[in-house]
Amino acid sequence: MIKEQEAGMPTAEVCRRHGLIPATFYKLKFKYGSMEVSQAARLKALEDENAKLKRLLADTMLNNVVLKDLLGKN
């Protein structure tokens, strides 16, 4: 999308073709504008992995709290 716009296609046309509002387009352009497609895909994969690790950490911390509560009540 960004390359289409940089090639001269009006932003409104790019947004219409891809079903975006201009604000979303510019947000994506700011985030991914200087990246190649492979770099953007790698960033997305790392963000997904980071989210998964954060969920695992939260689950582990919750389990620790539950175990401490159980041990403290006995």
Rank of each mutant, 00 (worst) to 15 (best):
M1W: 01
I21P: 11
E36S: 12
L67E: 10
V37L: 01
V65N: 09
R42D: 12
Y32E: 05
L20R: 09
S34Q: 12
D69P: 01
K31I: 08
L57E: 12
N74F: 06
G19E: 00
G19M: 01
A12M: 08
L53N: 06
G72N: 13
K54A: 07
L46M: 13
M35W: 00
K31Y: 00
A23G: 03
K29A: 10
N50M: 10
G33I: 01
A58C: 01
K3N: 12
A51E: 13
A41P: 00
C15K: 13
S38V: 10
M9S: 09
R16F: 03
Q39N: 02
V37G: 00
K68G: 11
K73C: 14
L28D: 06
P22D: 15
E36T: 15
E47S: 00
C15I: 03
L56R: 09
A12N: 03
E6I: 14
Q5V: 09
R17S: 02
L53E: 01
K3G: 09
K3F: 00
R42K: 15
K29D: 01
I2M: 04
Q39C: 09
D48H: 09
L28G: 01
G33F: 03
L20S: 11
R55N: 01
P22N: 08
L71G: 13
L28S: 02
C15E: 06
A12R: 09
E49A: 15
P10V: 00
K54Y: 11
K31T: 05
A23V: 04
M9W: 07
N63A: 12
I2D: 08
G72W: 10
M9F: 06
A41V: 06
L53F: 15
A40F: 05
I2P: 07
Y26R: 07
T24E: 13
